[in-house]
């Protein structure tokens, strides 16, 4: 995030860090115990799912603490229109974890917005571990920034003919103070407060550079994908859990028998 400030523990408990080969590459948000919402472009075709790690309950990427939980990915569901009508259109991914998140004051889910949410006069914030300068500097601390929403027609005027904005996209940036999302913030949530509850209205998706005030950050509009998100979370069962148990296979029984006999002989 450019122009962001340090975020305190417990302020954004749904924030997720997505790592690949041990390095932070994207953000995400917790929807439920098994599901994380992120951006589709964080999951390139060439990348292996086994190489991803997901961290929750963390603000400093170098300091996991007693509230930090680590997860492996069971499956990723990419929106069917990803890159279909736009180079970064349909930029939504549902990530199912192999095991369940344990909720606490430091780890909580975000709400989805109602489909008819009126976006005027909302206080909206974004968070992330993305680059903190256009030169590519990175930081380990989670940053936060309040970003005004920019009407889509106005955002389209700013981007001009070079980048077309789909109806499923929304824009936000603080042009006066140069606050904007940057590389590494992708997948992180844009959340707005309504009636004492935070709702996720956007997913960090793309933009032209980070420090050019005339090019706001572009987000996937969560309201546009609501039915797709709800459908998958309802129909997909939790992943099978591997429970520790005593095996009754003949081979293991034999091993146990031989071990007991060995102990008896020693005695």
């Amino acid at each position: 995030l450019l122009g962001g400030e340090f975020a305190r523990d417990r302020k954004w408990p749904w924030q997720v860090s997505l790592h690949y080969s041990g390095f932070h590459i994207c953000g995400g948000s917790i929807l439920s115990a098994y599901w994380v919402l992120s951006a589709a472009h964080c999951f390139d075709r060439g990348k292996k799912l086994e190489t991803y790690d997901i961290y929750v309950g963390i603000t400093n990427l170098e300091k996991a603490n007693r509230h930090t939980q680590w997860f492996e990915i069971y499956q990723v569901i990419i929106h069917p229109t990803f890159q279909m009508y736009h180079p970064i259109g349909g930029d939504v991914a549902l990530v199912q974890l192999k095991s369940a998140i344990v909720f606490s004051d430091f780890v909580l889910p975000i709400c989805l917005p109602p489909s008819d949410l009126y976006l005027i006069n909302l206080s909206c914030w974004t968070t992330g571990w993305g680059m903190i300068s256009p030169q590519g500097e990175t930081g380990n601390e989670l940053l936060e920034a309040q970003l005004p929403l920019i009407p889509r027609f106005q955002c389209q005027l700013l981007y001009g003919l070079s980048s077309y904005l789909l109806p499923e996209m929304l824009c936000a940036a603080d042009i006066k103070t140069m606050k904007n999302v940057c590389e590494g913030d992708s997948g992180s949530p844009l959340v707005c407060k309504q009636n004492q509850t935070w709702l996720q209205i956007g997913i960090v998706s793309w933009g032209r550079g980070c420090a050019q005030p005339l090019y706001p950050g572009v987000f996937a509009n969560v309201s546009y994908f609501l039915s797709w998100i709800r459908y998958h979370l309802q129909i997909i069962p939790n992943p099978p859990q591997i429970l520790p148990s005593l095996s009754s296979s003949p081979k293991n029984t034999l091993i146990i028998f031989v071990t007991i006999m060995g102990h008896l002989l020693v005695l």
Binding site: R10, W14, F103, D105, P109, I110, L112, V191, T197, Q200
Partner: peptide
């Protein structure tokens, strides 16, 4: 385990935990 009050959020997908309500609220 969270001490949050459940079942208050129509838009929650998380079942028994209230969504969007951090313990630490910004001013």
């Amino acid at each position: 385990v969270s001490r949050r009050h459940p079942k208050s959020q129509a838009n929650s997908l998380s079942g028994d935990v209230a969504c969007g309500q951090p313990v630490l609220q910004g001013k």
